[in-house]
Write a protein that binds this DNA or RNA. Structure first.
Lengths: 233, 233
DNA sequence: TATGAGTATCTTACGATGTAAGATAATCTT
DNA sequence: AAGATTATCTTACATCGTAAGATACTCATA
């Protein structure tokens, strides 16, 4: 029975590079970048692994592709904001742009790590930097100083930095205290610093830093320094 | 013949955690981090892959281990230099320390990428930061400002930053020119900047930046900014 | 010197991964 | 309706980390 017009389980949407990349981003969002495998990606799309290779050369291209997708998302957010950038306004404009990029990356926690490893030739990333350079030109920066500025900002320009220590989401307080105790003589300065910080803000767990505040702190140091150079140029 | 006292092909040095980690560093130095596999590592040591697991829990531990080895190397270099750090001297002291760390990392080009991914609980890294905090304390920094400072420096404290664009070692100039031409209208600011930089320094290939200069530029912006905060504290 | 208990290394095997090669099916053109 | 093009699937392989257990080495003790 049920012969003709067999109701297939799914309407069977054809694959495409865009669909593949979108699914890849979704997968990474849900399970982290290490959960993104060609087989799982195919399964997510109701296809077989090898079918992806008709739309994408290899996994490298998938990774480059999702970097570009995220960078596109960043551009969308960054282009929405529109503050005057002429003269002294440049700093606020750049600051906003960077922080809006950061907002996007916070929604894709795996992305910074990917951006970090990939030598970016992503068109969307280039567009992002182009706009950033434009803002600095508006502020009166020479190309040379702008170039230095990009290097100085580094990954911060895109809204992220290396986290060198565990942000310690969760993880026991009692163990932390014990550890602190035991290494007090080995690492007096570090332990001194951390105990005082914990003391000042008892709500925070050990090692729990306000990433956003710290990010802006570092960003502002650099922007202020650049602004001073701009004035004396 | 040649029965007793059979001359084995090798004197057979026993494995050990240290030997494993050293070999791992060597392997990464020669072929990059992706060439570091448990099998190759074992082969390098004249053993079988599974033998490594007697000295090391798993590959993760190898990776953490070589981070610690490199950090140890950094400490060795950094502890050798000894400049006065009291008061205003702090800046030069920190600067030197960071740049000496950088020197080590330049000899292990795979290391920054590893440091970046690993949530560092490496004792050697902790020792490094402890000394850094010590220098800033000598300079009169509060623990709070020191803490901010570490975040502001980020990976720069350890001597490296994200390279967001291809440093382009080699890679054709003609292609670069063509690319530049073709994207001039899409990326006017970026292209403007790069053409001027190439023009000013014709020796340099497109995208070829003096990494050391740029690193120090960014470092100094941050150190100068921190110094100003220190004075007004 | 034989024995037995650690200590260290090896053998074999499994599941996961990226992807090459080629078979098959779906779609479009004429 | 037939052939060509486009898209997907099947099968297979090399490489990876590593679990389980067999084997060999080392050395104190009987």
């Amino acid at each position: 029975m049920a012969t003709h017009a067999e109701r297939g389980p799914e309407p069977r949407i054809p694959l495409s590079r865009e669909r593949v990349l979108r699914a890849a981003v979704d997968l990474a969002d849900e399970g982290g970048i290490e959960s993104l495998t060609m087989r799982r990606l195919a399964e997510e799309l109701g296809a077989e692994a090898m079918s992806l290779y008709y739309h994408v050369a290899n996994k490298e291209e998938v990774l480059d592709g999702i970097v570009d997708v995220i960078a596109g998302e960043i551009n969308e957010a960054a282009d929405r904001i529109d503050v005057p950038s002429k003269g002294v306004g440049w700093k606020k404009a750049v600051r906003q742009r960077v922080l809006s990029a950061r907002e996007v990356l916070l929604r894709h926690s795996w992305a910074p790590g990917l951006f970090a490893t990939r030598t970016n030739e992503s068109p969307a990333v280039l567009r992002y930097f182009d706009a950033l350079v434009g803002l600095m030109r508006d502020g009166g920066f020479s190309y040379d100083l702008t170039h230095h500025a990009l290097h100085a900002l580094g990954s911060r320009a895109l809204g992220f930095t290396q986290e060198l220590f565990d942000t310690g989401d969760g993880a026991g307080d009692e163990k932390a205290d014990a550890v602190l105790e035991s290494m007090a003589e080995q690492l007096p300065n570090l332990v001194g610093m951390m105990t005082e910080i914990v003391h000042d803000d008892p709500d925070s767990t050990l090692g729990r830093c306000d990433d956003q505040t710290e990010f802006e702190f570092g960003l502002d140091i650099i922007l202020d320094g650049l602004d001073r150079m701009r004035e004396t140029a």
